[in-house]
Amino acid sequence: MHISEIILSPLLALIVGVFFLGLSRKIMARIHWRYGPPITQPVIDIIRMFSQKSVSHGNLFNFGIIFSIAGSIAVVLFIPFGRIHPLSNSGGLLVILYIMLLAPLGIALSSGEAANPNSSIGISRKLLLTLGYEFSLLLILLALMTHYRTISITEIVALQQKGSWSLFRLPLVLPGIAYILILPAILGVRPFEISKAPQEISSGPMVEYGGTYLALAKIEHAFAIVIGISLFVNLFLGGANNLAFFFLKVLLVFILGIFINAVFPRLRTEQAIKYLFGIPAFLAFLGLVITVLI
């Protein structure tokens, strides 16, 4: 654990996340047969938002969003990027699972103070979606932790480096497939974009965010993308020995996510929950049973 790593890893996550936001808009545009915005467009947007004079609905409104990004930064410190893992030894996967709560919780509290019914609906949907994918995700993580007999994420990465990727290990194939199936829900991309739903509930929790708050929410979104995918890469695609290779893997998974985002319409909340409690949950459950039996 070095000080330089502590500074480096959130910075990397931020840069990669913002780059991904730009890339996703570009790729989406190309899929739509458009030219698309410059790849730096998210940076321009964020600068513009910072310059705008927004409104605040109270102290919790200000604090919640800050707390949310702070939570994301903390998660980033716990997730190994290649060999950079400043705090991974302070609690392992269980802590990551729990700190990942802080970001949505912060946004939920912040937008809750705004007294806009749209944001309440958005939060309710977000929490429901979380419950839906968490069912499978917990089974998947438990299968991993049971298989490797550790709750430390660095250990899991190290063990994969020695052998094969978790995705190709016999008992973990099914959880791996289940994880891929719920990954869009974790990232909140299109078939599961129910909590934002710009056309329907005016971007849900972010409905009252403008100016600085919106910029912070954008940054939080960037972090969330990197966190969601990095966790998958670390747990199932073997992590990586160096940064470049790690982010290459992350990039590939992300592009896959954009493709899904580009072609799917949005599900209704009930449909999303039904889907999440269906095939992915079954596969993950089967995977855990097999892992325990072997």
């Binding site: 910072f50 310059s51 705008q52 927004s54 409104v55 109270g58 705004a114 806009n116 005016s202 009252e208």
Partner: peptide, 15 residues
């Protein structure tokens, strides 16, 4: 860094 936000009443929401 961002410009300062203006405090508004609770009822001033987008509808």
């Amino acid at each position: 860094l961002g410009s300062k936000a203006k405090s508004v009443n609770q009822d001033d929401t987008y509808a």
